[in-house]
Structure formats: C-alpha cells, structure tokens
Amino acid sequence: MVLDLLLAASLLLTAWRSLYANDPLQAVGLFVAYGLLLALAWARLDALDVALAEAGIGAGLTGALLLGASRHAADRSFSDRIASPMMRAFLAAGALSLTSIVALALWSLRKPRGPGIAPLVSAKLSESGVKHPVTSVLLNFRSWDTLLEIGVLVVAAFSILALRLARSPPRKYDPMLAALVRVMVPILGVCGGYLLWAGSHRPGGAFQAGALLGAAGVLLQLAGYDLLADSARRGFRALLVVGFGTFLCVGIGVSTLGHQILEYPPTQAGSLIFWIELVATISIAVTLNLLYAASGSGAT
C-alpha cells in the first residue's frame, strides 16, 4: 500500500515535470522515466503482460521515436503556450472539472457490481488452446480486436510509406556500436523467442516479443542499416503484412469449414494460435522498425 502510494506520487510528479518541461530532450527523458514507473505500477497491479508491453513499447520504443524527434524540436517555440489569460483560465477550469468528474465517477464505482467477465475467462480457458488468461483473451476470446490492432499497425505503416519521406544520410561507422550490435542482436532475438513461446502459459506473447525484436532492429538501424531504402522491396512489404494477412486468412478460412469467423477448432486452437503469434511477431517487429525509421530518429 505504501509502495503503491509512493509509486502513484512519483508517477504524477514525473508526468507533471515531463508535460511542462521547457527543454524537449528533458521532456522526452522524463516521459520515458514515467513510462518505466508506469511499468512498475502495472507489475504491482499483477499485470506482467502489460508491464512488459508498457516498458517495451510504451516507454522504450515510443521513447526512441520521441527522442529522435526531440532533436529537431529544440527551437524557441517548444514552450509556447496559449497566450490569452481568459482562455488559460478556462482551460485550467476545464482540466480541473474533468479530473474531478473522472475521479468522482471512479470513486462511486469502487464497489464491484458483479464479477465481470473474469470468471467466464477462467471457465473457458481450457478450451482456448492456451493456458495464460491474457493470451487467451487476446488470441482467442477477443481475437477480433487483436486482428484489427495488427491492422492498425499495418495502416500506420501504409500511411507513413505514403508520405514518401526523404531518406536520412548514412551514418558513420562506429566500431563500438558495431560490437555492441553483434552482441545484443542475438541476445534480443533469443529473449524475443522466449517471450513468444512463454505467452502460451505465462506473461509474454506476440506484442512483447515483437517489441524486443523491434529493439534489435533499432540497434541495427543505429549501426547503419537503412530500412527506408528497403521499403519498396516486395520481400520487405511481404514481411510487413504477413502477420495481418495470415491472421485474416485463418479467421476467414475457418468460416468456410462451417465455423464462425475466427473460431478455431478446439483441438487445433493451440497450434493455430502459436503460428499466428509467430508470424504476427515478425510483422510487429518489422512495422515497429519502420515506425522508428520514419520518426527521423535515424537521422544524424
């Protein structure tokens, strides 16, 4: 309890400092710190899957994207605020009332009215093909959401490619970095593989594994690999969409066998989920790398 209070207080403090910092680098740095604290909070809330996703994607990769952007943002306009005092007072009042409404509504909801969906998840877990509840929700019970969410990544990639960004100038060869990459990329690869495998029975899964493999790719980009140069190649494009495409094909395919859309035959559910997660991980890692390359972080 004391730990939770301390954690909540430091969350609020870092968020405040990050949101009102006057230096872009500082703002982003504090945002990453906030994300890591948030990952701790998730761990305290018994949500290790979310903690991993928040640390890897929410703090790590988002931080990497923002860090690159912060280098271009170091101009005077960074701390510009709305000037009109009337408007500022109005916005402050708006924020205050929003906070009070949300907080009061949540306080009035403190007593659970019922068990929610959780007992149903436990009851049907054995039929889902996996042993870990969060994975069963993501890849079976609510697989539609996950399919569309991978779709969101694909659309972001399409939109970014359609922007036809100028390519960054090549980086200088850095022997230290190259050595680090040679060590880290295989390690990240193995860890990502482990997380993917673990997802079926404990915290882990495609998104967390994709984030780790994405991080490996980011290291490669730092060492000089130019991802945007490859973005017109069909092989690269196939990797980008293979996750969504496979998921969609399986989801639609089972419906031709007399099942509902996305309904896996119970005996094959486990292996179908494994294969979907495997290809999804590849696409997620590739897409996250594209997002990183496009944010301008690769530019020197």
Partner: peptide, 13 residues
C-alpha cells in the same frame, strides 16, 4: 447476429 470466434457475448465479440 454472428458470434466471432464462436464464444458470444460477453466473453467474445
């Protein structure tokens, strides 16, 4: 009505 993934609400979508 079509129960995606065959579960039906509220467990499924």
């Amino acid at each position: 009505i079509h129960a995606l993934a065959g579960w039906g609400a509220p467990l499924g979508i």
